[in-house]
Design a binder for these strands. Sequence first.
DNA 1: TTAATCACTTAGAACTAGCTTG
DNA 2: CAAGCTAGTTCTAAGTGATTAA
Length: 907
Amino acid sequence: MSSSDDDMPLARANGHLSASKVSKADDRAMDVDSSAEAMPAPISVRNGPVDNHSRVNGSGKRKSRSSIANVSYKDASDSDDGPLAKRQKKIVADDSDDEVLSRKPKKLPPAASETAVLEDSDDDKPLNAKLAQKRKSIEKNAEKEAKAIRANESKQKKPTPKKAIKEESDDDAPLAGAKGKKRVSNGAASKSKANGVKKEESDSDAPIRKKIKAAPAKTAPAKGKVKAESSAPAKKTPAKKVKEESADPDEEDEEAEYRWWDAPKKEDDSIKWTTLEHNGVLFPPAYESLPKNVRLLYDGVPVNLDVEAEEVAGFFGAMLHQKHHVDNPVFQQNFFKDFKEVLDRTGGATDRQGNKVNIKDFSKLDFQQIYDYYHAQSEARKAKSKEEKKADKAEKDKLEAPFMYCRWDGRKEKVGNFRVEPPGLFRGRGAHPKTGKVKHRVLPEQITINIGKDAKVPQPPEGHKWKAIQHDNKATWLATWQENINGAYKYVMLAANSAIKGQSDWKKFEKARELKKHIDRIRKDYTRDLKSEVMADRQRATAVYLIDKFALRAGNEKDTENEAETAGCCSLKYEHITLREPQTVIFDFLGKDSIRYYDEVTVDRQVFKNLRMFKKPPKKDGDDIFDRLTTTQLNKHLSSYMQGLSAKVFRTYNASYTMANLLKNLPVNNASVQEKIKLYNDCNREVAILCNHKRTVGAGHEAQMEKLGDRIKGAKYQKWRLKQMLVDIDPKQRKKRGTEYFEYDEDLDESWIQDHIAFLVEEQRTKIQKKFEKDNEKRQAEGEKPFPDKELKERMKAADELDKKLKKEYRTKKVEAEGKSPTIDKIEQLINKADERIKALELQAADRDGNKEVALGTSKINYIDPRLTAVFAKKFDVPIEKFFSKTLREKFNWAIKSVEDNVDWEF
DNA sequence: TTAATCACTTAGAACTAGCTTG
DNA sequence: CAAGCTAGTTCTAAGTGATTAA
């Protein structure tokens, strides 16, 4: 046990340690419900403690529990560099200032996943239980399958019967080669990065541009081995439809698709290419000074700045609309500090007379003019005519053309991000301590180029040099540099639809599929180890349990001073988990990108006891739950089951496996295409929830929902009016249908209706006004005299009448039937229509609200084996376009093609 | 053993194009 | 027939995890 726990500097494993061994007595003690954790108030909110306004950590409820009254959520801390000691300083109820820092997401998402395994979970049983049941059966399934696979395998050394999927020959992991070997560069430079700056001109042979253009389509790679192609030339892309041959210089050498997924696998895939040609990177345009009349104001005084300082001011000014950043005090402070530095370096600011202006107070800065200027520019851009836009686009394309593609082993491949990141302000997510700092312009001198030995090295901009040139064919990047804020490495790599990315995607999913074979054994082992006497093992088993069951991320250690405080499994802290007897665990922490993970789940009793043990005093806030476990250890353990198995594979596995099972049990049979899509998306959504993929719907959402709500009410109001018309036509209707029928919908209330009437009238007015102006324009264009204002007034009478009419209706609750020769029948039809409309709108509202914070995209792009989708689409005759956008279809081309004639493919 | 380095995947926000829809 | 959305795309931050260096 550490000696002085309280004032220890913060560092992982520095907090309180658990004992290294667990005695029987310790174990038994955990059964007794006596710890500080003991009696949490029964929280039943699935959506997490919603603490509405400012404070977001949702600790309100828990704080009120005496037992853990001192739980301080890390976000309650007010220091960004938060040494533990500091964080512990008792946060009394309100540390007002830090809510402004917006450390937490503003809205409370619904509880992440209903992954509970056992019963319990007092309230909201039904939903919970249903989903839990589903998961459970999926797991059962997994075990069965694993056994089956193994049985099958031992019987016949040659596994897969399916010819199309030779990939399945999983015994030798696809990754094996790559990962096993060290990634020693065999390129020339790599060792001596610094030495670098090989003279570009030195080794340039034929100019690459020329080569690219010249290269006849078919004569692919005269160079290295690259035999792959041979095996499956099958589909050739027909030589491009006529079209603009001129526009794209690369158009001419359209090539046959490289069907690597049909090609034999390479024995050694650590070598990524044999030849590599490209044109380097595209730098952002140089800074353009603001016009003289656009100024930064300080204390109301327009100031002169050096261009460099002006540019930095411009960074801030340009993002004035991004309240989220601009209002964040940390962002402001960091920006201001850097801004002042530039100011100091460049001679400061002066007023019109040339007198020094001492800029020392951020709040006196006024960027409005700058913002307005940039905003106007972008508006102007948007307002451009079609032709102009087209011309602009053409110019841009021309500029980018040389960088768009590279030649990789002779094949033309798309480059992903050839543009060097422009300078600006660092937008860290969550409570990033460095958010708002100035991100410098990247110079060629900072950029290392990776390129084939025989390729022409791209020319750096006039008067500049590259930092270095290397020829590392074990790396897939074309260029790299380090960013100045965190020293993070940035890479220019190929696009997602490239062969190299596709292959590694494929490997990822194959790896996950391979896990199917081992999952039962792994689960058995960790279930056993949950009771291990060795604390490290017990922690590891518990962690794997959580990762497996709840799809948590591994949780690498983080640099607390320079990064936002977020957590994953291994880095979970004391305060991130609350325990409720007998076996409920409540997670509440910020995960990747500071996205909140909130979930109440039911766990095995042993897991519950272990967690209690890992939280045993003197552990407290800020201490690691898994103090004897690191991700490295965990992954090392996992890899003993299977080459290349690490924590993240579980996420892929669980997502894809879950998706597979969900799709399997879908009632697709006589569903329409629309319905099938909906069903698929529902599955997708479940996976997204499992992975806790969310989007923060900005302030806009609330307003949008309200607007939608208003539209619903509006429709209901119209329906009410229609009903009254029935009476107008035939007073007997009232008796016939009963008075209730003619009352307001419960959604509507008097004051809303009054507002609505005002709104409708106003709307009419605007319409009339607009129409009037338009008509006038037309007249003017035709050389006629514009209408006099009198005409407008005349027209406006319609609105006044409407006002009168609606108000009268409102007073008398009588509505005159509208339309020519209205009949009961006609009105009834209209009522039906209104009903339909209401229903549609309500559905839309519900759908949107339910979906508002779930992001389906991420799981579709990264976690769900695309072959599942391809098979689903094929099997049930839904066009793949309904599931994959154009880019996604390109990215997943391998998947779509490889199951084309194998709808029986299974994950 | 730990820390640093590096390369690559995963992630939500911001931006944009194109499609309704009022 | 623009306005207002949504879906799709781009951007780059933030993870993971292997390897290397200390």
